[in-house]
Design a protein around this nucleic acid. Structure first.
Lengths: 196, 196
DNA sequence: GTCTGTCTACCTTCTAGTAGGCAGATCGTC
DNA sequence: GACGATCTGCCTACTAGAAGGTAGACAGAC
C-alpha cells in the first residue's frame, strides 16, 4: 500500500532529527535503524549511500521551505507580518523543543568537511532563503510596510544572520527564550515609525 | 627542551583546525597524527582521551579570549572602537581564511550530541563573551560612546548573534565578504548620531 | 634510575556498504 | 482464473576499514 514510501519518509525524518542534534558525522545508519525499527541493510535499499540520504534530505528540506514560503506569501500580505511569522515559526520550534535547530544551519557550519553533493544542496538552501528575504525587504520598503536603513539585500542578510545567530545562542546557553529576546528588537527596528 | 610541551601545543592547534572545519565528530586521532607527524598512540600520551583533548582545547580557547579581551580593554578606551576591533578580528580571520570560523560556534551547534564535559566548556565560552559584551554595552551607553535602543544585555546578545550569524552566512555562501556586509550596518546602528 | 616522549603492535567496537535470500504484491499471458 | 516472471521491501550474514584506546618496549634527558 502507501506505507511503501512511508518507510523512506521515516528514515528521512529520523535522519533529520539526528543531524539536527549532531550533524553529518554525528549519526550512523545504525542510529536510524534503531529509531525506525528496520535493519541497517534495509536503509541502504532506500538510500544506497549516506550521501544519497542526506542530499535528498536537504533537497526536500528546501522544497518544503519553498512551499511554505509560497503559502505564506499568499496568506499574509504585509511584509513585516511575514517576517514576524517567520521568526515566530522558529520561536515555537525552539521553545517546544520539537525542532530546536535548523538542519541546514548545522550542515552549513560543517560545510568544508561535507561531501560536495551535500554541500552544494546546503548552499542552495541558504541562497533560497536569502533571495526570498530580499524580495520581502524590497516589497516592504516600497509599500511602507518596512522601515529599512540599508539596501534590501543587506537588510535581508542581516535579518537572516540575526535569526541564525539567535538560534545558535539559544542552543549555546541552553535557554530557548534567548531567541525571542534577540528577535524582538530586530523586528522593532524594521517596524515603520507611526509618528511619521 | 621546551619542545616537550610544543608537541601538545601542535596537537591542540591541529585539532582546532580540524574541528573548525568539521566539528567534534569530523576529526580523529589519525587525522591529527598525520598533520603533527607522530603516531596515534603518542597523542594519547598527551591527551588520554578525545574528551580530554577537546575539553582542554576549548578551555584554552576561552582563556586566550579572556586574555585578548583584557588587553583590548586596556588599549582601546572607546566602547564602539572595541566592538569594531572585535568585528574586525573576525573579518580578517574569515577573509584570509586563516581561522574562518569560531571553534566554539561549531561545537555549540553540535552541543546536544557533545560529551557533557565538552558541552559545559563550550557554554562557558559563550557566557564569557556574552557577559563581556554586556559590560562594553553598559559602559558605552553610560559615557555616550554607544547608541543603544535596548537594554545593554539585549544589545550584547543581538550583537553576538549578528557576528555568529554573519560567520555562518559567509561560510554557507562561500563568500567571506558577506561578513563585513552584515557587520557594517550593525556597527553603524550603534554609532552615536553626531547631529545630536 | 626514573621520568618523558615516542614507538610498534594490538584490541574492540563501530562504520558504511555488499551479497544473496525470501516473502508478498503486481504483472502479462495463456 | 491459473502460471510463472518480475519487482519491492526487508532480512541475515558478511566485509574492509576506521574509530578510540591499551600494553609494553625503547631511547634519551635529568
Amino acid at each position: 500500500m502507501s506505507n511503501l514510501s512511508n518507510t523512506s519518509d521515516e528514515i528521512l525524518a529520523s535522519a533529520r532529527n539526528l543531524i539536527m542534534s549532531g550533524g553529518y558525522n554525528g549519526f550512523s545508519y545504525a542510529d536510524i535503524s534503531e529509531v525506525v525499527g528496520i535493519r541497517k541493510a534495509s536503509i541502504h535499499h532506500h538510500f544506497p549511500s549516506k550521501v544519497d540520504l542526506v542530499r535528498e534530505l536537504v533537497k526536500r528540506y528546501r522544497e518544503d521551505g519553498q512551499a511554505n514560503v509560497a503559502a505564506l506569501e499568499q496568506n499574509v500580505p504585509n511584509a513585516l507580518d511575514i517576517l514576524k511569522v517567520y521568526a515566530n515559526h522558529w520561536t515555537k520550534c525552539i521553545e517546544d523543543a520539537s525542532r530546536p535547530y535548523c538542519v541546514c544551519a548545522l550542515l552549513a557550519s560543517e560545510l568544508p568537511s561535507l561531501p560536495p553533493e551535500v554541500a552544494t544542496e546546503v548552499t542552495n538552501f541558504f541562497r533560497f532563503i536569502s533571495s526570498w528575504l530580499t524580495t520581502v525587504m524590497e516589497r516592504g520598503s516600497k509599500n511602507g510596510a518596512l522601515n529599512l536603513t540599508s539596501e534590501p539585500h543587506v537588510e535581508a542578510e542581516a535579518f537572516l544572520a540575526t535569526v541564525y545567530g539567535a538560534m545558535l545562542s539559544a542552543r549555546a546557553y541552553g535557554k530557548p527564550e534567548v531567541f525571542s529576546t534577540i528577535l524582538a528588537p530586530a523586528l522593532n527596528r524594521l517596524t515603520p515609525n507611526v509618528s511619521h
